[in-house]
Structure formats: C-alpha cells, structure tokens
Simulated assay, not measured.
Amino acid sequence: MMDKKTSRLQRAAKTRHTIREHGVNRLSVHRTPRHIYAQVFSADGTTVVASASTLQVDIKSGLTATGNVAAAKAVGDAVAKRAIAAGVTSVAFDRAGFKYHGRVKALADAAREAGLKF
C-alpha cells in the first residue's frame, strides 16, 4: 500500500521522464501548505534558468498570505517574466504530481498570461 506522498512522487517521476524525452525546458512547481515555489530548468535539466517563490522578499511584500491562490499568481507571473528575460519562451509544465487545480492551476495561468508558452 502506497501513501499519498509516494504516489505523488511516482506520478512526478513519470511526467519528468516524458519531458526529458522531449528535450524541452521545464517549469517545475512545488507546493507546501505555507509556500509555493517555481523553477524553470534548462532542456538538459542541469541548470536553473529562472526561479520564484513566496519566500522572496520582492514577491512576499505585495501579499497578505503566502499559501493562497493570490500568492501562486504572483509567483507564476514573476517566474514567467524572469524566464523570458533569460531567453526562454516555451516550457513544459511539470506539476510534480500535484493536481492541476487551485494554486498549481493559478500559477500556470499567471505564467501563461505573462507570456510563457506551454
């Protein structure tokens, strides 16, 4: 019997394997009850091209809370702008096994609105 976390990590591994086969940049999301993190990895997966999280002062300062949909939108917008500034316009979305719902969906939508294609 697998627990919730093991199942999620197994789903994440499957997705990452597929993305690696396609050889594209990857927007990876990690979610905890208190914070949300996003990183854009290069196509080979070795370097972080851009990152944003609710821990960063410039993002945190404009928020009332860090574990809600508004915070996720702010992180999505910031990571997209930083990725585009670094020359990345197209990514594959890696939700790390989390449901595409709530904060994960809000981050993805905000990144798309800011000009990131996926």
Rank of each mutant, 00 (worst) to 15 (best):
66 T>D: 07
52 A>I: 01
57 V>T: 07
97 G>I: 12
49 V>M: 11
25 N>C: 15
24 V>Q: 14
51 S>G: 09
111 A>T: 02
6 T>E: 11
58 D>I: 03
112 R>D: 03
80 A>R: 04
19 I>A: 06
103 R>K: 15
116 L>I: 10
41 F>R: 07
73 K>H: 02
62 G>F: 03
59 I>P: 00
116 L>D: 00
118 F>T: 02
56 Q>T: 03
111 A>M: 02
90 S>G: 00
100 Y>C: 05
96 A>W: 07
41 F>S: 05
11 R>S: 01
76 G>I: 11
17 H>I: 00
105 K>N: 08
9 L>Y: 10
88 V>M: 06
85 A>K: 15
36 I>W: 03
109 D>F: 08
41 F>G: 02
87 G>S: 11
61 S>E: 02
115 G>T: 09
21 E>D: 13
96 A>E: 14
19 I>P: 06
106 A>G: 12
110 A>K: 00
50 A>Y: 10
115 G>R: 07
3 D>W: 04
8 R>Q: 13
25 N>M: 12
115 G>Y: 09
78 A>N: 03
11 R>N: 04
43 A>V: 10
78 A>L: 05
8 R>G: 06
19 I>V: 08
44 D>W: 14
91 V>R: 04
71 A>F: 08
91 V>Q: 04
21 E>W: 04
95 R>F: 03
17 H>L: 02
79 V>A: 02
28 S>V: 05
86 A>Y: 10
88 V>G: 01
13 A>V: 10
55 L>V: 14
72 A>Q: 08
33 P>H: 12
73 K>G: 01
55 L>W: 08
40 V>Q: 02
20 R>L: 05
